[in-house]
Design a protein around this nucleic acid. Structure first.
Lengths: 109, 109
DNA sequence: ATTATATATTGCAATATTACGATAATAAAT
DNA sequence: ATTTATTATCGTAATATTGCAATATATAAT
């Protein structure tokens, strides 16, 4: 046990849950907010800003990269991270489709 | 280790991450979709529909209840669950505030 | 009163996530 | 060539999550 039974859910349910999972950590929310404000950043900026170890920040960046919401470009000895606007907007739409469903007024009893 | 350092993040970052976390599981996405379609449901409906054990469904319902997105009303020997429209809309707004931030066009280099 | 039905809770095993030190890899600067 | 700066990866410990059987609780039906 302890293993999510992905096979019993639809692709859409699994996909949505995966997207939510990536932003379901305060460090990753903070990283996204920081990049949005600063437009770009490097890993070390985040280490100083957030106060987490470099290895930890690097790991969080990797997860954000995994869904494409940020992208990294090698720039000399650093890596410059920025939001991928297209992916950001796509994810925004995906969440919208889910949350803007019409919820019929029908209380229990 | 293995413990999220909540104290280094803002309340907003922690709150957003918590909300995302609740919907970051395909079973909970499926449960919400099912309730939206059927308007209401009882725990056993979900056990049959999703094919997870009753204890597991009950646990997922508990997590959804914890943020108020669904509410349960005792109805005879069953519990009738439905979406709480106000909370649903509030969460929708919270996600919107986050994702509708203006992402400035500024690629790395 | 007993049985049947529906849900919640507890305890536990398996797996996943978070965090970090140590180390490797790479490029710039000296 | 050596040092410095930046990031990624590996290994590991601590904690969290997922799933279920067993059990407890509560109401309806017989």
């Amino acid at each position: 046990m302890g293993l999510t039974k992905s096979e019993i859910f639809t692709d859409e349910q699994n996909r949505l849950a995966s997207l939510f999972k990536v932003v379901a950590h305060p460090a990753r929310v903070a990283i996204l907010q920081y990049i949005i404000n600063q437009k770009t950043c490097i890993c070390n900026d985040l280490v100083e800003e957030l106060g987490l170890a470099q290895a930890t920040i690097s790991q969080h960046l990797k997860e954000l990269k995994s869904i494409g919401i940020i992208q990294g470009t090698i720039e000399g000895k650093a890596v410059c991270y920025c939001i991928d606007e297209n992916v950001w907007k796509q994810i925004q739409r995906d969440f919208d489709v889910f949350f803007n469903q019409e919820v019929k007024v029908s209380k229990c009893c």
